[in-house]
Simulated assay, not measured.
Amino acid sequence: MGAYADLPGVRTWYETEGDGDPLVLLHGGFCTNETWGAQRPDLAGAYRLFLPERRAHGHTPDVAGPLSYRDMADDTAAFLERVVGGPAHLVGWSDGGVVALLVAAARPDLVRRVVVIGANFRPGPECFTDPAMLDAMTPDSPDMEFFREMYAAVAPDGADHWPVVAAKVVDMWRTQPTLSPEDLGCVRAPTLVVAGDDDLMTLEHTAALYRAIPGARLAVVPGASHLVPLEQPERINRMVLDHLAGDAEVETMMPVLRAASGAPGGGG
């Protein structure tokens, strides 16, 4: 079921499904809720899903000026307050993961548990495995056809607005996010960091993200790319469900990072 919510920043399209504790799914850049198709049945069997489409994505219109992750995080916090009605679990993929981290750091009162998939905390030139890909992402390039068609199918601003949105998103990737390890240290919600072993972000960057979040857990999925939720949905869905249920919090026999931080789940 889909509807619009009139939030302070933008009139936001969202969908809902399932019953139980609230779980917000945050899609990736250039994407729509359609990309969560492989996750929705399993997750909706255990949770009440909320799927907002961010400004300039899907059914949600663009706004004046540049796009920023912080504005999108503010939109998401307002969505949690006004539509969800309180704290929820957040699962964010790519740009959605960046937004989830920002919300978790700034509004811990609104976040229960977090899963981020293929997320980054520094701009693309600093963390992409192949930063040159940013130069190839022109609105009419063949590599953008999938996103271009997805946008044109539902965008309230019309297909002709695609070049504007494409340029805004790529500009955002070039310069944002600009989080520090200290910023990530403000994330207190139990967090699972997931990446493919051949992801857009370097494994070194993903490891730095994981290490900066107190008590975080890390899963590097073998034989997977940035599209791991589509490539290995059963594995990803199981990881998400286990983490949100707390089933992954077992005491280890020889903790190092968790022993030093005193985070839950450490042994010694």
Rank of each mutant, 00 (worst) to 15 (best):
A38L: 15
Q39F: 00
Q39H: 02
Q39T: 01
R40S: 12
P41E: 04
P41S: 05
D42L: 12
L43T: 00
A44C: 08
A44H: 03
G45I: 07
A46R: 15
Y47M: 14
Y47N: 13
R48M: 03
L49S: 06
P52W: 05
E53Y: 00
E53A: 01
R55W: 08
R55Y: 09
A56P: 01
A56N: 09
G58N: 09
G58E: 02
H59P: 03
H59N: 07
H59Q: 09
T60S: 12
P61C: 05
P61T: 09
P61H: 10
P61M: 08
D62L: 02
D62Q: 05
A64Q: 14
P66G: 13
L67H: 12
L67W: 08
S68T: 13
S68C: 02
S68F: 05
Y69L: 11
Y69R: 06
Y69Q: 04
D71T: 15
A73Q: 00
D74H: 14
D74E: 15
T76F: 02
A77N: 06
A77F: 06
A77H: 05
A78T: 09
A78V: 10
F79I: 05
F79Y: 14
E81T: 15
R82V: 14
R82I: 13
V84C: 07
G85D: 12
G85S: 12
G86H: 09
G86I: 10
G86V: 10
P87G: 11
P87I: 06
A88N: 06
A88V: 04
A88R: 00
H89V: 04
H89R: 01
H89A: 11
L90W: 03
V91K: 00
V91I: 06
V91L: 07
V91W: 02
G92P: 05
W93Q: 12
S94T: 01
S94I: 02
D95V: 06
D95A: 14
G96K: 03
G96H: 02
G96A: 08
G97Y: 03
V98M: 08
V98D: 00
V98E: 01
V98F: 04
V99A: 08
V99M: 11
V99I: 15
A100M: 04
L102C: 03
L102P: 00
A104I: 01
A104R: 06
A105H: 04
A105L: 07
R107W: 12
R107E: 08
P108Y: 12
P108Q: 09
P108A: 08
D109E: 11
L110C: 04
L110S: 02
V111E: 10
R113F: 03
V115T: 13
V115K: 09
I117Q: 08
I117P: 04
G118N: 01
A119S: 14
N120P: 12
N120Q: 15
F121H: 15
P123T: 08
P123C: 05
P123F: 07
P123S: 07
G124W: 06
G124T: 04
G124V: 04
P125D: 00
E126Y: 13
C127E: 13
F128A: 12
